[in-house]
Amino acid sequence: MSIQVTSPVSRAFKARETGLIVIIATIFVVMSFASEYFMTAENLLSMVKSFSVEAIVVIGMTILLISGGIDLSVGSVTALAMVIAGSLFLAGLDPWLSSLIAIMACSGIGAVMGLMVTGIGLHHFIVSLGVMVIARGLCMLGTGGRPLGLFTLPLEFKWIGTGSIGPIPVVIVIFVVFVLVFDFLLRQTTAFRKVVYTGSNQKAAAYSGVRTQKVIFLTTMLTSTLCGIAGVIYMARFGSAQPTFGIGMELNVIAAAVIGGASLSGGSGTILGAILGSLLLAVVSSSLTLLNVSVYWQDIIRGSILLTAVTFDHLLMKRRG
C-alpha cells in the first residue's frame, strides 16, 4: 500500500481556485493593455459592486449545493424580501424592523422548503421550483405588479445600499464580511464540515453520526435567509421594491457556484471558489463592455465558461473515480 503525501503547494496548484485566479489575472493583464479604463479604481469598484449583493446569495447557494441540494427560488425570494420590507415601510413601520420581518419571512420560507425536503422526502429541485412560482405570485399580489417607490427611505437605511466607507462602497464591505465569515465557517468549523460530509455521501455521513436531515433543513433555511438579507440590501440600493426583480438570478448564482468548483452532485465546493466564479463572470462582462463588444456575446461567453467548468468538473470526478 502506498500513501500519497501532497504538499500544500501541490494542493494549491490542484485547487479550482488557483485555476480561476490564474484566468482572472490573465484577463486583468490583457485588459490593462486593451483598455485604458480597465485598471482604474472606478472600474474595479464598479465591477465588484455589480455582483457584491448577488454574491451573498451565491454563498447560500454554494453551501446548499455542497450539501447536495439546490434552490431555484432564490430570485423570487429575494424579490419577496424587497416587497415585504417595502410594503411594511410604506405602511408606516420602521425600515429596520420591516427588513428584519422580511428576512424572518424568508427564513420561514426556507424552513418550509427544508421540511418538505426532509420531512416529506421531495426533491429540492421541485420544491424550490414551486416556491419560485409562489413567491413571484406573492410579489405580484402584494404590489399589483407595480414597483413600490421607496424614495422616502431614511438616509441612514439607504446607506447600506448606497453609502461608502472612505472610497469603498458599503455593499462591498458587507460582501467581504460575508465571504470571510462563511469561508472561515466552511473551512474551519465542525458544524459546517458536516455539510460537506452530508453532500459527499449522505448515508455514510448518517452512519458516522451526522444528523443529515437537520443539515439539509438548516442549509435550505440559510439560503433563503441570505436571499432575505440580499433583498433588503437591494431595496436600500435601488430605493424601490420590484415584483419582477431577480428573474433569472438563480441561473447566475448557480453558474457562479459551479464555475467556482461547487459540484451539482454535492460534497465539494468553497466559498472563495464561488466568489471567484462571480468575479470571473463580472470581469468578462466588464471587459466586453469596455471593448464595445456586442452585449449578446456576453451571454454566449458566460454560457461557454459554465459549460467548460462543468466539463472540467466532470472529467476530474471521473479521474478520481
Binding site: S46, E54, Y234, F238, S286, L290, V295
Partner: peptide, 14 residues
Amino acid sequence: DIAKQIASFEQDLV
C-alpha cells in the same frame, strides 16, 4: 433586469 441595467450604465460611465 434592473440590477443588470444599472451595472451596464455604471460600466458605461467608466
